[in-house]
Design a protein around this nucleic acid. Sequence first.
DNA 1: AGGTCAAGTAATCACTCGTTGACATGACTA
DNA 2: TAGTCATGTCAACGAGTGATTACTTGACCT
Lengths: 205, 205
Amino acid sequence: METSEADGPRRRDAAATRQALLEAASSRFTRLGYDRTTLRDVAADVGVNLALIKRYFDSKEGLFKAALASTPRFLGRDEKFPQDREGLAEALSHQLSAGAWPEFGEHPVLMLLRGSGDERVDALRHKALDEFGRQILEASGGGPAGEDDDERLLRAQLLVALGVGVAVVRSAVGLRPLRDATAGQLAAPLREIVDALLAPPADER
Amino acid sequence: METSEADGPRRRDAAATRQALLEAASSRFTRLGYDRTTLRDVAADVGVNLALIKRYFDSKEGLFKAALASTPRFLGRDEKFPQDREGLAEALSHQLSAGAWPEFGEHPVLMLLRGSGDERVDALRHKALDEFGRQILEASGGGPAGEDDDERLLRAQLLVALGVGVAVVRSAVGLRPLRDATAGQLAAPLREIVDALLAPPADER
DNA sequence: AGGTCAAGTAATCACTCGTTGACATGACTA
DNA sequence: TAGTCATGTCAACGAGTGATTACTTGACCT
């Protein structure tokens, strides 16, 4: 596995060891989920002793939380969150295309969905996805996220669910042609979905 | 837990015991996933000895497969699969509404997503979701599922992904308002999505 | 009543996991 | 060079898991 770079034997560099553990753990948590990820495997990936995980992360829960915190957000890692429907559709099509996130082989949103039993972790992922929905709502241009219009938020969350579903279906099930869909192939359908869901606030009901 | 009916102590009825084990297992597999479901808990739910699981299902894998096989399909349990886009949207809105599937507290599609490590189980869920996509494609009325038009199948699978995502986001994350959305609230957005994705075969490209 | 076999139980085995405390070792400083 | 502390290793414990075997109990048949 050896997620870390292939430099020398990395002798006694706490920061590097910690980072390597974090990356190995992120990979396993994302690919296998919390339960099927064993600390022994993570330590073996890095080539380090099991007990170091306790030293740096205190427990498996701590390791999971650290990995979760180090995971890039669903949208907008470096770039800013798109500010209109068109940009949103394009960003989504890239985020959800095959070949995105080749680093771990799976989409980081999947780690959000792996239960850990800890309610603070649950709160964390809830917050992340809730924020994502509100950002979508705001980007859709329907005014500054009004308060009582749950309907528009519901529509935005349907888009969130679509993103989650695509990640899940592709990686957990491998359904084709969705699994191999490129950004170009996803662009048109996603643009139409975004428009259909978050159409301009012209009174359509 | 006691998923079985609250009749007498059910003395020596193999079929009933087997069925009760199956229901308890389905519930736990759906709610907790494969790993967090222990055979001891399942047996305790039914009030029966652990070894009976081996007798009736041979192994945990066997129990999971049996539970998976007994799970109703994503759409069309008793009723037939809808045959037009309108019916499809309506069926989806009911399937994905809050309060559907109260029996296990979660949507049965979730059990499909819980890994078991067995490749035959993987094949099973892949087939189920693939079939679902093709049924959607057929119901959309774009002819009898042409062969080379992967694009339409891709669009149908996006709808599958949406269904999966809604189930996941609602139950695993509890995101509101999506979590509490009724069929009535889901009807309009879903109809628009279905139409946007599977629009009539008028040449739009 | 007695025989017979399925239905169910109790006890245990082998294994893996997370966790832990004691110990070794390398690097830096005085 | 001796001291010191962070860095890393080692070996083991205890809990929990799925699996397995020998045993007991009840229902049904003649």
